[in-house]
């Protein structure tokens, strides 16, 4: 058993604008089961952050409890991190994000951590449109506690234990849309080509960005009767279209066929190119997005890709009109404007 990743990397690894190779964004060697989908998502996060040239110390990764919530140890080893209690990651992110708006907040959670014990926190962080990326590594089970069905397990789906799940499933994307989420996407751990640009787009979005990533649990829920297995998802995934993400600072080198792509300029100036397939979905219309989700659910297929994007999203800081300076940088003189000011205020209220 290897406890360390060898130090050597490919000698010609590309460097990003900061001069870092991908190695600067890696973490410790994973202790998850071999073949766990979560590891692929970790890999996609590493690539996305490297390609976006984000300074590692400008990222905070937070999680709850579960195999999925363990993954922050396995990526972004040079970033801030907080492993909170089960289902409570959103409140810790909220606190952190309010205190320091200058970091990029990456929340990592599982379907158990989100859709069971953390459902309440999930709902409210969406309502508040906190500026964060929220990745659910969704395997339809509680992996860490040996594979019990979770609330996202589809009705009729059976894990290694063999009993079909009798309950209806929570569709996290559907719930998020309903709760007012401003960025909703779904992807598959085994499809980095789609997942990486989605993570990048989510990181450039101002407001709450959910990516529900189906991520097979090879140990407990990769059975032929499971709808969260590698094979099932590969066979039943239908992409909304292709996503291409062009970071703000990068010149667009690829030529796009006019008309085929939809260009969205994100808050930080980056450009998102959406290549829509002949699908009814309009990703800028919440109703259309909800309808498309339900249609696919009825067909027994899994809709992946960018499902909904609110181009005019206003995040919590904007809504609350907080100061541009991070709260944790305000000192006593900023926070306590003095006796004269207090007298003025008091006077104005008399």
């Amino acid at each position: 058993m290897s406890y360390q990743i060898p130090k050597f990397r490919h000698p010609e690894l590309p460097v990003n604008e900061l001069g870092y190779t991908r190695a600067a964004y890696e973490g410790a060697i994973s202790t998850l089961c071999a073949g766990c989908g979560h590891d692929s998502i970790s890999g996609a996060i590493v690539r996305a952050c490297h390609e976006l040239s984000i300074e590692p110390h400008k990222i905070a990764k937070l999680s709850g409890i579960g195999c999925s919530s363990k993954t922050p140890t396995y990526f972004l080893g040079n970033s801030h991190g907080f492993n909170s209690v089960h289902g409570r990651m959103p409140s810790v992110v909220t606190g952190a994000a309010m205190a320091n708006r200058e970091l990029l907040y990456l929340g990592v959670s599982g379907d158990g951590d989100t859709a069971s014990i953390g459902m309440g926190q999930f709902a409210h962080v969406i309502r508040r449109n906190l500026n964060m990326v929220y990745i659910v590594m969704n395997n339809g089970c509680y992996g860490l506690t040996k594979g019990q069905d979770s609330a996202t397990a589809d009705e009729g789906s059976a894990s290694k234990k063999g009993d079909a799940n009798p309950f209806s499933a929570i569709d996290l994307c559907g719930a998020a849309l309903q709760l007012g989420a401003t960025f909703v996407a779904r992807s598959f751990s085994g499809d980095k080509e789609q997942l990486i640009p989605l993570i990048k787009a989510a990181m450039s979005h101002r407001g709450f960005a959910l990516i529900d990533v189906i991520s097979p649990c090879v140990t407990f829920n990769n059975t032929p009767a499971s709808t969260k297995s590698y094979e099932f998802v590969r066979e039943h995934a239908e992409a909304t279209g292709t996503v291409d993400f062009v970071p703000m600072r990068k010149e667009i080198t690829t030529r796009y066929t006019a008309g085929a792509a939809h260009e969205v300029t994100m808050h930080d100036g980056s450009v998102l190119h959406l290549y829509k397939d002949a699908d009814k979905l309009d990703p800028f219309d919440r109703r259309s997005a909800m309808l498309a989700l339900m249609d696919h659910q009825n067909d027994g297929t899994v809709l992946t890709g960018l499902i909904y994007l609110d181009k005019d999203s206003r995040d919590l800081h904007e809504v609350l009109e907080t100061t541009q300076r991070p709260l944790n940088q305000l000192d006593e003189t900023d926070l306590c404007p003095g006796n004269r000011m207090l007298m003025n205020i008091n006077a104005s209220l008399r």
Binding site: I5, P6, F8, R9, H10, L13, I29, S30, A34, G35, C36, G37, D39, S40, S42, G43, S189, G190, K192, P216, V218, N222, Y230, E231, R234
Partner: peptide, 15 residues
């Protein structure tokens, strides 16, 4: 092979 990408992700030298 079930194409789970585990080997791709772990390989330190991107082989």
């Amino acid at each position: 092979c079930i194409e789970c990408d585990a080997c791709v992700d772990i390989c330190p030298t991107d082989c």
